[in-house]
């Protein structure tokens, strides 16, 4: 757009996407900030929104797979909480250092402390 064509619109407010802060670099608003702002808008009670369309938890039990090979795992190492499917894998599991076991747990989203 050239300068003389520039129009001002009465319905236009300031740019909502740029974080106003002291630093010079322009920062885009993160998803979290947009989510919070959207939530704060005055919605009617029965409105269907981003949060309300989450699929609910499943009724089926989670299957257990060996963290080492991906095969169905009937066993869990009580020490590291890793799943394994046979004796061979158990030996491997027991020899893994802490950071690797933590990584494996993270992989299947089971790194919460509870449980």
């Amino acid at each position: 757009m050239t300068g003389d064509l520039e129009k001002t619109y009465c319905f236009k407010s300031e740019n909502k996407f740029i974080v106003k802060s002291g630093c010079k670099k322009r920062m885009w608003r993160s998803l979290k900030q947009i989510l919070a702002a959207d939530r704060a808008l005055p919605w009617p009670d029965d409105a269907v929104l981003y949060y309300s369309i989450n699929a609910p938890p499943t009724f089926k039990p989670t299957k257990k797979y060996s963290d080492i090979s991906g095969l169905p795992a009937p066993y869990m190492d009580r020490h590291s909480k890793l799943y394994y499917s046979n004796a061979e894998e158990f030996a491997t599991v027991r020899n893994l250092p802490m950071d690797i076991t933590a990584g494996y747990l993270q992989l299947r989203g089971a790194s919460t402390i509870v449980g």
Binding site: A55, T58, T62, K63, Y65, S69, G70, R108
Partner: peptide, 23 residues
Amino acid sequence: NNERFSIPELLFHPSDVGVPQMG
């Protein structure tokens, strides 16, 4: 090996990667 079909299986069982939702 089993990666070939256990990956798309996540669409049917999101709970396998700790997403507590239905397939």
